[in-house]
Amino acid sequence: MSAESPASAALTAVLTEKFEIDPEHIRPDATLESLDLDSLALAELALALQEQLGVQVAEDEAAKHTTVAELTAALNAKYAAAGAR
């Protein structure tokens, strides 16, 4: 079993703690919209992730039709790039 990435851990933590989403619903193929996140919630999600990871989260990266896997991949890439500086 692979270790959870910092981005994945942060995303799961924000979704479960801030938005009270059941961890069972946080699947790689779940869209942010299917997790009942509206436009305001998506903005809050992006801000919370920026604070936790120290990377910018663009509006199109945390959009309604973005999947958990897509957002995690984008965050992992930014987090790794930020760490390489």
Rank of each mutant, 00 (worst) to 15 (best):
A62I: 06
H65V: 00
L11Q: 00
K64E: 12
L37E: 03
A80F: 07
L49F: 02
E59T: 06
L40A: 15
T67P: 10
V68L: 13
R85M: 09
A41R: 06
K78V: 06
E61I: 00
Y79N: 01
N76C: 10
L71P: 02
V68W: 04
T66E: 07
E44G: 09
P28M: 11
D38F: 11
A10Y: 01
A41V: 00
T16Q: 12
K18H: 09
L45D: 00
A30Q: 05
S8E: 13
S2C: 03
E61N: 09
S34M: 11
F19T: 09
A81K: 10
E51L: 10
A3I: 00
I26M: 13
E51H: 05
S8Q: 15
T31N: 12
E44H: 04
A41C: 07
G54H: 04
N76K: 05
L32N: 05
V14Q: 00
E24K: 13
I26Y: 07
H65R: 07
E59S: 07
T12A: 15
S5T: 15
A84T: 09
A9V: 02
P6V: 05
L42V: 04
D29M: 10
F19C: 06
A63P: 06
L32P: 01
S2M: 12
A84C: 01
A77T: 14
E33K: 14
S5R: 08
G83Y: 12
Q52M: 04
S34E: 13
D60A: 03
A10G: 05
A81S: 10
A77D: 13
D36W: 08
S34F: 04
M1N: 05
L47R: 06
V57G: 01
L49R: 01
T72D: 11
